[in-house]
């Protein structure tokens, strides 16, 4: 089994493989493909498409949480765009999602390059670095919220010992609240990206690296001129996944700040939640969710385009 799995992973798609026997395989399995896809699409339709359509419909209605719907056309969208909060919320979500995802992928890349270069204890690191992604988000949020308290928090205490400014307000101030939020987002997210990128980095053909070493390329040159270009498609995939994941990230941020102080950390999912469940405005909430969906689709589309175009290089 082991040698089956560790087949070279980065390899060009080879059309020559489409021999006659493969067509035989394809023919034998074709009707099973259709049969097995039916329940898959059925579930996706029931649990994703249908509720999504329901939300889109809701976004054109007024609904306080109970009772009948009242069709209001595009009024929900108009009022969202007229009020300034949606724009703020989109800005905050993009800031959170882009900054956190960028750092996640950068750190994960560095860590995976480090581990792949025959580092001692790399098995241990592989296991441990994914821990933050596995722990319950409410536990993570509680710990870090206390950690970022200005008076008795761990973070300021450590900064103080290092001789750095230790009177930071962190979560208690609109201008600084996104630092801890993004930091914890990164802390949680690196493990997953690291594991994917590690696979890609290790998949880079050893002979390519050896050739580069013989050519006298420094480690930094190896990283930027050989490894990164080779694994670029994977990096874009990981970046896209992270952007989508963080754009959708409700659990952590809500548990840390509830969107405050004021509404300064109110990312779109929290905006949606607050509109619906605190104010009972399910129509505008659904409209905000639809707008979030459009952003997510755009991110996904760009991500797919980028990773494809890189692949053709």
């Amino acid at each position: 089994m082991a040698n089956l799995i560790s087949r070279p992973r980065v390899r060009p798609a080879s059309p020559s493989k489409l021999g006659s026997s493969k067509i035989g395989l394809a023919a034998a399995n074709k009707k099973w493909a259709i049969l097995s896809l039916l329940p898959v699409f059925g579930m996706l339709f029931l649990f994703l498409a249908l509720p999504a359509l329901n939300s889109i419909w809701l976004s054109f209605n007024k609904w306080p949480g109970i009772g009948p719907l009242e069709y209001v056309g595009t009024a929900n969208y108009v009022s969202l765009f007229q009020g300034g909060q949606l724009a703020d919320s989109i800005r905050i979500t993009l800031l959170y999602s882009i900054v956190a995802s960028f750092f996640i992928v950068a750190i994960a890349l560095l860590l995976s390059v480090a581990v792949s270069s025959n580092l001692k204890g790399s098995k241990f690191f592989r296991v441990v670095w994914f821990f933050p992604g596995v722990a319950p988000p409410s536990a993570v949020a509680i710990f870090w919220s206390l950690g970022f308290q200005p008076e008795f928090g761990v973070v300021n205490a450590i900064l103080g010992r290092l001789g750095l400014p230790s009177d930071n307000q962190w979560l208690a101030q609109s201008s600084t609240v996104m630092f801890p939020v993004i930091f914890v987002g990164i802390w949680v997210g690196v493990g997953f990206s690291f594991l994917i990128l590690l696979g890609a980095v290790e998949g880079v053909d050893v002979s390519v690296k050896e050739a580069a070493t013989i050519d006298g390329a420094s480690q930094r040159q190896q990283l930027f001129q050989i490894i990164i270009p080779l694994i670029a498609p994977v990096m874009f995939t990981v970046l896209t996944l992270q952007l989508i994941f963080n754009f959708n990230g409700f659990n952590l941020v809500y548990a840390m700040t509830e969107g405050g102080p004021g509404r300064s950390s109110e990312i779109l999912p929290i905006f949606t939640y607050v509109e619906a469940f605190r104010y009972g405005r399910f129509g505008p909430a659904s409209a905000a969710a639809v707008i979030a969906g459009i952003f997510l689709a755009a991110i996904g589309w760009v991500g797919i385009r980028l990773s494809r175009s890189r692949q053709l290089d």
Partner: peptide
């Protein structure tokens, strides 16, 4: 494509 649907959007219909 299903992964781009915001989860918070699904909750009320569910």
């Amino acid at each position: 494509v299903g992964t781009v649907v915001p989860i918070i959007m699904l909750v009320i219909p569910y």
